[in-house]
């Protein structure tokens, strides 16, 4: 990626969330699926819509609109699940991103991608790599690794315990990892 940044242009997949236009580095995208039934996983934040079967594996699906606070992706003919590969530590992990629609693949001059504004954008600044312009439209270029980072998901999962009956249960403090015990 660093290399691309130095030389000319990069290719992006554009997708819509509500009225906003977003872009994802095409190299992160593995495939694009039509909407299928998502298996709900209880006690997860609402934007974690659940898992879908992608060739025999249960792949988590994130509702990007909810994640960004832009409402909720409703099922329409245009709804798509974009399967992305993200790096977590050293391992490659596969996640699905639920989007209202997927538009096109386009090329952006790297030097035309500006750093994100500190505030005022539709989405939290640290999810955004930059803002690009295509024709007369602005695109928010997503930082895929950040958007799907599991820390992010974990943190929010604790805040977002939706159960009305009890307070979120504090996780018993991990004493010491088992591996360390056995060294």
């Amino acid at each position: 990626m660093a290399q691309d940044a130095q030389f000319g242009s990069q290719r992006f997949l554009t997708l819509t969330l509500g009225e906003e236009l977003f872009a994802i580095d095409i190299f992160s995208v593995r495939e694009i699926l039509d909407y299928t039934d998502i298996t709900r996983i209880p006690q997860t934040p609402e934007y974690m819509r659940g898992v879908v079967n992608v060739r025999g594996n249960a792949v988590p699906v994130v509702d990007l609109r909810m994640k960004f606070g832009l409402g909720r992706v409703e099922r329409t003919l245009n709804t798509r699940i974009v399967i992305v590969e993200i790096k977590k530590d050293d391992t490659l992990s596969v996640m699905g991103a639920l989007a209202d629609s997927v538009k096109e693949v386009l090329e952006l001059e790297t030097d035309r991608i500006d750093p994100p504004p500190r505030m005022g954008a539709a989405v939290r600044a640290d999810f955004i790599r930059g803002i690009g312009k295509h024709g007369d439209r602005f695109l928010l270029v997503l930082d895929v690794d950040k958007v799907f980072s599991s820390d992010e998901i974990q943190d929010l999962s604790r805040l977002a315990d939706t159960d009305a009956e009890a307070k979120p249960v504090p996780q018993p403090a991990e004493t010491v990892s088992d591996e360390e015990f056995f060294r």
Partner: peptide, 8 residues
């Protein structure tokens, strides 16, 4: 299940 659900 994906690691992001490890708290479950």
């Amino acid at each position: 299940l994906d690691d992001c659900y490890r708290h479950l």
